[in-house]
Amino acid sequence: MINDDERIALFLDYENLAIGARDGLGVAPFDFGPVADALAERGRVVARRAYADWSAFDEDRRLLARAQVELIEIPQRVGGSRKNAADIKMAVDAIELAFARGFITTFAIGTGDSDFTPLVHKLRELDKRVIGIGVQSSTSALLPPACDEFLFYDRLPGVEPGQPTRRGRTRARPQAVPIEQPTEQPTEQPTEQPTEEAAQADDGDAAQLITRTLAGLQRHADGPVLASRLKRAVLRKDPTFDEAELGFRGFGELLRHLEGEHVLQLSPGSAQGDPEVGFPEDGSEVDDAFALLVDVVRQLQALGSPPQLSGLKDQLRKRRPGFSEKRYGFNTFLSFAKAARARNLITMRWDAAANEYLLHVPD
């Protein structure tokens, strides 16, 4: 089988990314998941390396190891400045890999440091595509124009900015809060009920994974998205994905089921059994979701002030339990709201004092 997916080597100037995300976005420890998902939509990552003095990133080190990232130790010199010492080592390793592994088509360089601009130029001279990744507030203006594509970490689906963290302080990773079980009255629900609810949840999770992946592929694809390409991208995001666990005999049957639910739309592809996958053109489902958003915003603004974007999704879920913008191909609720604004259904105004968007339904 011919596989034309990009083969990507990922190099992370980790200190630059982690400190930029902590100070600029309030994200600590650095969440590698959105980066992995974005690259999975673009191709197959064959090498993952992160460079840092890991004594300063103890929790990050454990999280990256679980994500199968190779950790390259770059100790800081005693008494020296905090200038990142990973630059030269990372550049040398990237050039060495470019010559030693000719099958690698793309290099993803995670940094905001302009010192890596010569590396980007050299990789492009070697006919390699270069994807840059950086935090917007800490990325030099010289770096993005040098790359074939640049991904601002702030804009990646799944990144949830918090409050910027002061230097020298760390933010504790949120822990799951155990739910207390009732002790006075025994539960008498039949065992079939939790199983059915779990199956429905799995089905919904699969639909969100597929629609989110499809939306990502459509944003940067040169042509139609075929089912085979969609399946490969889904597996790169979640290698444990198996449509058989959801009760479907094949991926095509799952796609036809989602088409019947008006989540996707299939059309004949270039090869038999490999249809093109897209979102429904009639837009009836997404129009209904936009109508819900407008109705909720109108009701909240009638109380006296325009509602904020944060917390608005919970208000929609009170009206429609299980609501998710991912079902309609939007990776974040912000992008869903912006789509409604583009259709002139709502207006959005940035409130600097509240550090939040305020929404309003025009008269």
Rank of each mutant, 00 (worst) to 15 (best):
D13A: 03
Y14K: 07
L17A: 01
R22T: 10
V35K: 00
R44M: 07
V45I: 06
V46G: 00
Y51R: 05
A52F: 06
D58K: 14
E59H: 14
R61H: 07
L64I: 09
Q68T: 13
E70D: 15
E70R: 15
E70V: 13
I72C: 15
I72P: 01
E73I: 00
R82V: 12
R82W: 15
K83L: 06
N84A: 07
D87A: 09
A98S: 12
A100W: 02
A100D: 15
F103Y: 15
I104N: 03
G112S: 12
S114M: 09
D115P: 10
P118K: 07
V120P: 07
V120D: 06
H121E: 07
L123Y: 04
R124I: 13
V130P: 12
G134E: 02
V135Y: 04
Q136R: 15
S137K: 15
T139D: 13
S140C: 13
C147S: 06
C147E: 07
E149Q: 14
L151S: 09
R155F: 11
P157F: 01
G158D: 01
V159E: 03
V159M: 03
E160I: 13
G162F: 13
G162V: 02
P164H: 11
T165K: 06
R166Y: 02
R167S: 14
R167P: 11
R171L: 15
A172Y: 05
R173E: 12
P174C: 05
Q175C: 01
P178G: 08
T183F: 04
T187D: 09
P190Q: 14
E192P: 00
Q193G: 02
Q193V: 14
E196K: 12
D202T: 08
I210Q: 04
T211L: 11
R212N: 10
R212M: 09
R212F: 05
A215W: 02
L217T: 12
P224R: 11
R229D: 11
L230M: 04
L230S: 03
R232W: 03
V234I: 15
L235G: 05
P239A: 10
P239W: 00
T240W: 04
F241K: 10
G252F: 06
L254G: 01
H257T: 08
G260H: 09
H262N: 15
H262T: 15
L266K: 04
G269I: 00
Q272N: 01
G273T: 08
P275K: 06
V277S: 02
F290L: 06
F290P: 06
V294L: 09
D295V: 03
R298Q: 14
Q301L: 05
A302C: 06
P306S: 03
P306W: 03
Q308S: 11
S310W: 02
G311F: 05
K313C: 13
D314W: 04
D314L: 08
Q315N: 05
R320W: 05
G322F: 09
F323H: 05
K326C: 10
K326F: 04
F333A: 01
L334G: 09
F336P: 00
A337R: 00
D351H: 08
L358C: 02
L358E: 11
D363G: 10
